[in-house]
Computed example of a mutant assay.
Amino acid sequence: MSRYEIVFSGQTLPGSDLETVKANLAKLFQADAQRIALLFSGRRLVLKNNLDEAAAGKYRTALERAGARIEVVDMDAPVEEIELAPPPAPSEETVPAAPGRLKVAPRDEYMAAFADVDAPDFGLAPVGADLQDAKAEPRAPQVDLSQFNLAPVGSDMGQARPAPAAPAPDTSHLKLAD
């Protein structure tokens, strides 16, 4: 007896309005807007699993009536096993790596494409070693100042002169009373 699971990926049936489908699913699942937003995140979500054929059909009917495109997957379907090809055997034509260069032996067919890549053999530095290059000392820029000279002390450098002070107010008419 086969077992099935109901899978939803956030897609709607053709001709269905997205907001209407969200509202229908919220009513169907009795869920708030945040949980419905998670359903429409685009990820593949298993809504229900381990169902018999009749129950899977009921779920399909209810969800498609709500406007959601679902997938009913047979959980007992055989899974195809893939066997990787063994790495190629070292041949006598293989040229040993030059000193300081890395020779990579491919582990599978995909990595065999990178077997002839010439890569440097970077070693590991001892613990506590400074790996950053030393910074060059900053140099002051060479600026030609020969066209400038200094004015004598006290000379007018073109500053704005302050406005003359206003006359003091006349307070002769003011008296202090006892």
Score class of each variant (00 low, 15 high):
residue 49 N to R: 15
residue 114 F to A: 12
residue 168 A to V: 04
residue 149 N to D: 14
residue 42 G to D: 06
residue 124 L to E: 12
residue 96 P to V: 07
residue 126 P to N: 13
residue 69 R to D: 14
residue 110 Y to K: 10
residue 122 F to C: 04
residue 63 L to Q: 00
residue 15 G to W: 02
residue 63 L to A: 02
residue 22 K to G: 01
residue 159 Q to T: 07
residue 174 L to M: 11
residue 31 A to N: 06
residue 134 A to W: 05
residue 160 A to S: 12
residue 120 P to W: 03
residue 136 A to N: 10
residue 48 K to N: 12
residue 83 E to A: 14
residue 60 R to S: 11
residue 177 A to W: 10
residue 172 S to A: 11
residue 144 D to H: 07
residue 33 A to G: 05
residue 66 A to K: 02
residue 66 A to T: 03
residue 165 A to M: 11
residue 102 L to W: 13
residue 29 F to A: 07
residue 158 G to C: 06
residue 10 G to M: 01
residue 144 D to F: 10
residue 111 M to R: 08
residue 10 G to E: 00
residue 176 L to F: 14
residue 15 G to S: 00
residue 40 F to K: 00
residue 23 A to D: 15
residue 114 F to Y: 15
residue 45 L to W: 05
residue 148 F to P: 01
residue 159 Q to M: 11
residue 116 D to K: 07
residue 51 L to P: 00
residue 146 S to L: 01
residue 155 S to Q: 02
residue 144 D to N: 15
residue 103 K to R: 15
residue 169 P to N: 04
residue 93 E to L: 06
residue 91 S to F: 03
residue 43 R to M: 09
residue 160 A to H: 07
residue 112 A to N: 11
residue 118 D to K: 15
residue 108 D to K: 01
residue 10 G to S: 01
residue 142 Q to P: 06
residue 43 R to T: 04
residue 154 G to V: 00
residue 78 P to K: 04
residue 40 F to W: 01
residue 167 P to C: 11
residue 132 Q to M: 13
residue 146 S to G: 08
residue 115 A to C: 02
residue 147 Q to V: 08
residue 93 E to Y: 12
residue 117 V to E: 14
residue 126 P to F: 14
residue 74 D to W: 05
residue 178 D to Y: 13
residue 113 A to G: 14
residue 169 P to V: 04
residue 68 A to D: 00
residue 72 V to D: 04
residue 151 A to Y: 10
residue 68 A to C: 00
residue 74 D to G: 00
residue 122 F to N: 11
residue 118 D to N: 12
residue 150 L to V: 13
residue 93 E to W: 09
residue 29 F to L: 13
residue 156 D to L: 03
residue 116 D to R: 09
residue 89 A to Q: 14
residue 99 P to L: 04
residue 111 M to T: 11
residue 109 E to P: 00
residue 63 L to Y: 06
residue 71 E to H: 08
residue 129 A to M: 06
residue 123 G to S: 02
residue 27 K to C: 04
residue 111 M to A: 14
residue 96 P to N: 04
residue 42 G to Q: 01
residue 33 A to I: 06
residue 115 A to F: 08
residue 139 R to D: 12
residue 155 S to L: 00
residue 149 N to S: 15
residue 59 Y to N: 04
residue 110 Y to C: 06
residue 142 Q to N: 15
residue 2 S to G: 06
residue 20 T to L: 09
residue 72 V to P: 01
residue 61 T to H: 08
residue 107 R to F: 09
residue 58 K to M: 11
residue 41 S to C: 02
residue 154 G to Y: 02
residue 57 G to H: 02
residue 16 S to D: 04
residue 85 A to N: 11
residue 129 A to N: 02
residue 58 K to I: 12
residue 3 R to A: 13
residue 126 P to I: 03
residue 79 V to L: 09
residue 8 F to Y: 07
